[in-house]
Amino acid sequence: MKLNPYDPRQPTEPEFFIGREEYIEKFNKNMERTLYGKKPTSFAILGEWGVGKSSLLLKLKANIDKNKNVITTRISIGSDIPDYYAFCQLLVDKINIDLTKNRRIPQKIRDNIFEWKFKEVKLGVVTAQKKEKTMYLSTGNMLLEYNLKTLFDDFISKDNVKLFVLFIDDLHNITRKDKNAIAALRDLFQSLAVDGYKIQLVFTASSDLFHDVKQIAEPAVRFFEKFYLDAFSMDETKEFLTKPMEKTKFGITFANESMHYLHKRTNGHPYFLAFITQRLVDLMDSGEINVDVIEKYWELIFKELIEEKFERDVSGVSPEKEKLLVSIANREDDMVVPKDVGGLRKYYPELTHDNLLKKVGRGKYRLYHPLFKEYLKTKNLEEK
């Protein structure tokens, strides 16, 4: 049975990843320079919801995992992490667990890491037996720094590892609770680099991350090399619709006009492309997908998109906010300023934070995607 390679709910598998060549090349060149002696550079992958930040993170990790002199670990940060200290504790636990399971590390070293973790780290107090002193790790950075340095000095570097890379997905789930978190991470990883440790940080976050912290953490803004992701170009959309089909030998192809049609309907947005393409491939046994095929199934696919995405978008929105969204959708002009739709200025930042509006200029907003606008307009018709 051939498995559909498109899945809007999950990051794209590295083998099916397309585009972003400029960022991949820049990252790979930086890694090579780091392995030959340069201090590691930390990277921030930024973008709106659904544009493929996690997919790029996985692709970079898959590429670097091929190098026997590099060890990596990846963690996704949920919204349930209460504060920065808990975040650092989570990182420490995940790093230790991943290292003890990494078969590229000799079993003896993995056993030593396992023994060190459970015998020397107890309830946030680290008894450093080899150094004959007790360290009370009262801050998240102290906890993370001690563990990273100890792991690198006593274990990782003994296996000829020249670089350790920490990949963090959805860092904004912490920075929105503590705006000082990004400054703390900058301080830590800059200090590690100055002390000669080849430990690199790569993370994803929402596109507004540095706007939110700029005033209190300007050095952190400058410290990270930033990759800003946007929707696919037309060429990237074509590659997205052809590469997975060719690799899986599905027997399904997309006509050229259908690629342009889908790009226009989705604005090249990776999530919506993946959602619609997955449904089309499921509905077709084989053959060519042309515009007639897409239009034949469009009503069915759009109904599923409403149920799985758009209804969830508005499920937690108050009636006043939902009414505002519908009013915006029924304007001819996609761009809106609060005074044009009955004021309610206080709701615009909140709806932007919820990824339902997008700020496109000083005091100017628009709905986050044309398909969401299309849904809201049908909702208005139902109410009438």
Rank of each mutant, 00 (worst) to 15 (best):
E299P: 03
V161H: 10
H211S: 12
I182R: 03
C88H: 05
I168G: 07
F155P: 00
F302H: 06
E15S: 12
P11R: 12
G196V: 09
I97G: 05
I75L: 15
F43I: 14
K303P: 02
K94N: 06
N112M: 05
N380S: 13
Y84Q: 07
K149P: 00
S54K: 09
G361E: 10
I306W: 07
V126E: 06
M259W: 00
T204G: 03
E350R: 14
K26S: 09
F43W: 12
P319E: 09
S76M: 07
L324H: 07
E320I: 14
A193R: 07
G140V: 14
Y136M: 11
Y228R: 07
Y368M: 10
D334P: 07
K249S: 13
Q190A: 08
L371N: 02
E21P: 01
K339L: 13
G52C: 03
I276Y: 03
H369P: 03
E382N: 08
N141I: 10
G363M: 14
M31Q: 07
R331E: 12
R110Y: 04
I216Q: 11
Q107G: 15
D313H: 09
P338T: 07
G47R: 03
V121P: 00
V70F: 05
A205Q: 05
V336H: 03
R186I: 06
L283A: 02
T266L: 03
G78P: 10
H260W: 13
A128F: 07
T127C: 07
E288I: 12
S138T: 14
G251F: 09
A184D: 10
T150Q: 11
K323C: 08
A183S: 13
D93Y: 14
D65M: 12
N380C: 13
T352Y: 05
K309E: 03
R265L: 14
K66N: 06
